[in-house]
Design a protein around this nucleic acid. Structure first.
Lengths: 335, 335
DNA sequence: TTGACGAATGTAATGGATTACAATTTAACT
DNA sequence: AGTTAAATTGTAATCCATTACATTCGTCAA
């Protein structure tokens, strides 16, 4: 492998000058610069990132820690984050926890030793967060940039960039109220967890604002996450119990798709008998029949703010502890 | 940051011994080993990956190069690949090309300098492949492991692990034939590209095997990729032209969902008037109404074979140039 | 008791880029 | 021409783990 010394020799300069040229320093004569560039070119020189990182004391990748990269908005999030990081020459490394939630502890512990520059937490299990706090602080102390994306963790001293779920769920409920619905169920509470808490709160508060009571029977828990299957199962169960509902606000588009399937399977019409809203703005929602009305989350904006946060953080500038991105309602035929 | 020397000092040994202990060498007395481990523990020592990689001359991450990580089986693929790589202590770095297809050239060129150990190509634009060949060879020559996942590139000397698309499409067509369908359209040809070629061939060959003619009017091109929207548009267009179809084999689940939406919007029933099969085995297919019959692709198996290939490659052992994974038909109500 | 051999440990070079500091050249001005 | 400040370039140390080679210690056999 050709290195700086080879280039230096060929260009009749020192390795320091080569380094200066290649890192774009201004203190090099144009003529010298040209010589070096030519030599590097001729030799096909490529800097060794390990050496550079070793010397600089920091790497060039950010890990995206997810619970399940396969579903919901996470694929989109990964895509947009990668694109944003590419703009500042950083790599996005994937860490999907899956069932191995304890791996998060491991990640925090070894972030530095793995040469990570930062951690985007997209699915920390909040139940554990309190016990993880010391590890987070230790990692942050070592210079790891830690940012929570898509989940509020400011309570634990972790800067967060999130969609305004409270407002989003409120918009969904208000939309349904405006359509004359009154028995508006919420599908997707995870009891005992902070995940999705704001969405369920948004539903609750919007109903209260409208002077309607909260019927606990109309708040449906899911345990297996925000997937279609859970939506189908919970909705079926509710219908089997003979519950009266005329609208469902689902915590995710996938839950909504399951709910719609269950409703149709029970011989109900959507939105005739029951209107349904999703959450997320997944691309295929528009091709369900009925097409899914949903709370669209601007993932590109989220990713961009994440990059901006990171840039500010690295530059030692002030950065916001909490950024909220306003979602928007997409009305389609399911409502 | 605490390093080997610090540990060595505390344990009253040399840095060499520390290194030996930490890399599990056998030439260390048990007693010494214990001292070193204790010292490392006490100091909270963590090896510096850059130094190690610099010395060893190779990194510990593999890049997954995709065209669009957001759709199709790619999120699932990323998830499973990451899980497999985790087993052998490698990281998965994401590179989504999006519209910047020319970035692939860049990636190949700088793979070594980025410290990559390998490249999983999940969406090389085959049109360019011939011109990319020299770069591939150069990268491979520098020790980069290059494997095509989910797309056959053996023709270019790149080992490939793929689903057997030919068989998959054949299964779909045969299933439809068995259901008495005869006007079986293929949705998702990309003319002038190798992408999806095997699937369209599978459709064609299955029809020929059954003694049926290929009607060019029943092969629908998509230009914008395998997304719902394209499926909707092409199907609508075909129906508007008054084409007679009684079944559609789509090249992806998303195309299928678009097709179904278009059919329903045209007042046709699925599968009554037109049966539809998807391709991929996307999780929400089961919650479309009608639920989508599809060719299920075993992505976990693909990922596992990719890991095995990589292990063999690194060990210098023989590895297969082409692995085909047999898909399976999932029959649901859309057929 | 000593030579020989194996086991354990140490010394120092190595991988490659960056950068503080030193040295040299050039420009500017009297 | 003679200084001095400014612009370039060079020297060498540094980041840290690994490992070839050298050395030391212990043990066994003659």
């Amino acid at each position: 492998m050709v290195n700086v010394l080879d280039v230096a020799e060929r260009a009749n300069v020192s390795s320091a000058t080569v380094s200066r040229v290649l890192s774009g320093s201004t203190l090099v004569r144009a003529e010298t610069r040209a010589k070096v560039v030519a030599a590097a070119e001729a030799l096909g020189y490529e800097p060794n990132s390990f050496a550079r990182n070793l010397r600089k004391g920091r790497g060039s990748s950010i890990a995206l820690v997810t619970g399940d990269i396969e579903h919901g908005i996470y694929p989109r999030l990964a895509k947009h984050l990668q694109r944003e990081l590419e703009l500042i020459n950083l790599n996005l490394v994937l860490f999907n926890l899956g069932h191995r939630q304890e791996r998060l502890r491991h990640m925090l512990q070894h972030a530095t030793s793995m040469g990570l520059r930062g951690l985007f937490l997209a699915s920390a299990d909040i139940a554990d967060m309190a016990s993880l706090k010391p590890l987070v602080d230790r990692a942050a102390g070592k210079g790891i940039a830690i940012l929570s994306v898509s989940q509020r963790l400011e309570g634990f001293g972790i800067d967060s960039i999130v969609h305004d779920d409270l407002a989003g769920a409120g918009m969904a409920v208000e939309h349904l109220l405006a359509r004359g619905r009154r028995a508006i169920a919420y599908l997707g509470r995870i009891s005992g967890s902070e995940v999705g808490r704001e969405r369920s709160l948004g539903h609750e508060q919007a109903l209260l604002r409208a002077g309607l009571p909260i019927d606990p029977v109309l708040v449906w828990d899911v345990r297996e996450g925000f997937r279609s299957e859970a939506g189908y199962r919970m909705t079926s169960a509710a219908l089997d119990r003979g519950l009266h509902v005329d609208a469902i606000v689902a915590a995710s588009d996938e839950l909504a798709s399951g709910a719609i399937a269950a409703l149709l399977d029970h011989g109900l019409s959507v939105p005739g008998d029951v209107a349904v809203t999703g959450f997320g703005g997944i691309s295929w929602g528009n091709y369900l029949r009925p097409a899914l009305s949903t709370i669209d989350l601007d993932v590109a904006a989220l990713a961009e703010r994440a990059r901006l946060w990171l840039e500010a953080h690295e530059a030692g500038e002030a950065h916001p502890a909490l950024v909220m991105i306003r979602p928007s309602l997409i009305v389609r035929s399911s409502t």
